[in-house]
């Protein structure tokens, strides 16, 4: 489903060139559950933004469902994001003036789906996330865990294939953090490809495939280790 080939992303900071992603190769199959860990500044978020088509590579190629994305224009990238990708952010990124329900509904609205067709989709997600009695609340009336559940609802309402979560539990206490992770894992069980960036070793260990990043490279990949350990 995803293939990165020699992907680079560098930032010019002053007269210095920072290689946030340094000739990265990565393949992700449909339905995988990955965690990405590594020290601060190792390029985790940059990788996630790249996979989410929010950022463009400086060099290399990113194949998403057999489509080479590096040459696509903004419009085409937006369409791919809309169709295939859902995001969950550490800081939720909910729109404060909209209710929980409206936040979840937003992607459908932006996609131009008719209100009649939107309602059952949103209802299903709200029920699924046990947010029924919070649906009409504004984000600032919700707890952190509830906000992140709303954000997850918004991420999955378009039924994406890929769910990208950048430190989804970073702002949560351990209990609601665990709930959120369990929810994401349930979604993964249902078939969605899940990639979680985290600093929490316990959460990282839950993933079936663990990536460790250092200095813009993948220092270790549990998938390859298994392969190499078999080989050795």
């Amino acid at each position: 489903m995803i293939e990165l080939q020699q992907l680079c992303r560098s930032f010019q900071v002053g007269d210095q060139c920072v290689h946030a992603l340094d000739h990265l190769d990565l393949k992700i199959a449909r339905g995988e559950y990955l965690s990405v860990m590594g020290p601060s500044g190792s390029g985790k978020s940059t990788l996630l933004n790249m996979l989410g088509l929010l950022d463009k590579p400086s060099a290399g190629e990113y194949w998403l469902n057999q489509t080479a994305t590096s040459q696509l224009n903004e419009e085409a990238l937006a369409t791919l994001r809309r169709q295939y990708i859902g995001f969950v952010f550490q800081s939720y990124h909910l729109i404060p003036r909209l209710t929980a329900r409206e936040n979840i509904e937003l992607p459908l609205i932006l996609a131009g789906i008719a209100p009649k067709q939107r309602r059952p989709l949103v209802d299903k997600v709200i029920t699924r996330l046990a947010l029924t009695d919070r649906a009409s609340h504004a984000p600032n009336q919700l707890s952190g865990g509830q906000r992140q559940r709303v954000a997850i609802g918004r991420a999955i309402v378009m039924k994406p294939e890929l769910l990208l979560a950048d430190e989804p539990t970073g702002n949560l206490d351990s209990v609601s953090g665990r709930e959120v992770i369990e929810l994401l894992e349930e979604l993964n069980d249902e078939g969605i490809t899940l990639l979680v960036v985290t600093h929490d070793q316990a959460i990282g260990d839950r993933a079936r495939r663990e990536l460790k990043m250092i200095d813009g490279r993948i220092a270790s990949d549990s998938a390859n280790q298994t392969i190499s350990s078999i080989g050795s």
Binding site: G52, L54, E74, E75, A78, T79, L80, R81, R82, Q83, I85, F87, H93, I95, L106, P107, L110, A111, R154, M158
Partner: peptide
Amino acid sequence: REIGLLKALGCPAR
């Protein structure tokens, strides 16, 4: 940030 979010949700520049 809201504009960024809209774009992340697949909202085209238009």
